[in-house]
Design a protein around this nucleic acid. Structure first.
Lengths: 246, 246
DNA sequence: AGAAATCATTTGTCAGACATTTAAATGTAT
DNA sequence: ATACATTTAAATGTCTGACAAATGATTTCT
């Protein structure tokens, strides 16, 4: 039934797959202890190092955690949003850098996704969310702020927007999209005028949420998207010109 | 600088982290070969099994691939969308099941995200995308279709919608959201009337895309979302009633 | 009874060996 | 000289056995 597919894979990959399937299928529930490495080795007919490699694969995906000592072992891990965020961000970042995704494509995706949050955020935003956004806007206006810090604050601002939608599933999916943009954004040099423009848009967005005006929020995001893509185009154009000169 | 954080982790986790950082930072480029396991063992001052565990961790995240034989070894893997999809879907599915996310929350997130695709899909949809959607609609209308197949077709329909936006980054982020809903959807029993209703909405959505009418597409999605959440509520209500009876 | 010491279990790590795969080098025959 | 077969070397895959370290349970001593 499975030998055709499995034959091509390492034993540790097969074992990891079998255990993962059991977890996904709910045969192993959260916090349940797996058999010890020796027992697993016997069960699968392999040596302990092979079992360990399989377990490390699962640990890398946060599917299990291990504990040493008596009554230790490998336990099915409750996948928390915070852990999933990290992996999601790493994967998204690498996807962008390794596949030479254009700034425009990534930017379009990011703002499209944020736009999805706008109506919910307008409806549910708390005073805390608004305060967080205003704080970042203030930060972005401070003189002497490095481009990198400006980008970091931009990310924090947008994450506050996403969190304002009060939907953890949405926050999870957007974490990657928002954070993965940061390396791309860091390639942009923001002039004082650029910053003023962006800060104004952020202000408009915060105002819209405060007024619970979904349409205005979407419009602000749309404008922000267009402006950011324009900035990206300028950078690309400058680089092309420089390359041609050289 | 790092010893405080590293001290708590296994050697294999530290080594995997070091290599991962090098990949993310671009110090190791795609298709570049890592030193052999023996060389890595020397370099990090650990044994080969420990290095292997570290490499398996990275392999589990598709960051590297290994090849046997002469001139084999571990190579930095180009993270492809297809591979990333799979991990994304597994993670999303587990996040939903392990954190007892309500059907409503997941559904809301999914449709909010799809709504983000609607304007782009309306603008860029090709004849192929439309054909794929129509085909799934036709499939959904066939008598004798199991609930499971109906759900699978629903997923295929929505993925066609997402792909119609012609933005791979968007497709990637939505893959998890759409696919992870399937197990939750499978818990619903669709009556003939439910199906008729859903198929009508799907038809309206396809019509809107064909007419390149973004607003109509968003409206259709909104309606579909509301209807699906209602179905979920009914199921939950029935289950509660049954539990109380018992 | 309470604290200390011991024990048993389990993961973490190491060393060395052999099996298997694969590409390159070598040799051979046409 | 080219084409094919053979050998070789390098690398990963796997196994065995061992010891270290952590940790909860047990026993012992006060």
């Amino acid at each position: 039934m499975k030998t055709e597919l499995d034959a091509a894979r390492d034993l540790s990959a097969q074992i990891a797959g079998a255990i993962r399937d059991a977890i996904v299928a709910g045969q192993l529930i959260v916090d349940e202890r797996l058999p010890s490495e020796s027992e697993l080795a016997d069960k699968f007919g392999v040596s302990r190092p092979t079992v360990r490699e399989a377990l490390k694969r699962l640990a890398a995906q946060s599917l299990i955690r291990t504990q040493r000592g008596a009554s230790g072992g490998a336990f099915v891990n409750r996948l928390r949003y915070e852990e999933a965020y990290g992996q999601q961000i790493t994967t998204s970042t690498l996807l962008l850098s390794m596949n030479a995704v254009s700034f425009e494509t990534a930017c379009e995706a990011r703002y499209a996704l944020e736009r999805a949050c706008a109506p919910l955020a307008a409806q549910r935003r708390s005073a805390d969310h608004l305060a967080a956004m205003r704080a970042e806007i203030h930060r972005q206006g401070q003189p002497g702020l490095s481009d990198e810090s400006f980008c970091a604050s931009d990310v924090a601002f947008h994450r506050a927007l996403v969190d304002a939608a009060e939907n953890p599933v949405l926050s999870y999916h957007l974490a990657g999209a928002v954070e993965a943009m940061q390396p791309l954004m860091n390639m942009i040099t923001f002039t004082a005028r650029d910053r003023t423009e962006i800060i104004a848009r952020h202000g408009a967005l915060a105002d819209a949420l405060e007024a619970r005006d979904a349409a205005a929020a979407e419009a602000a995001l749309q404008a922000l998207c267009a402006y950011t893509i324009r900035l990206g185009r300028d950078v690309a154009a400058k680089r092309t010109r420089r390359t041609q000169e050289a």
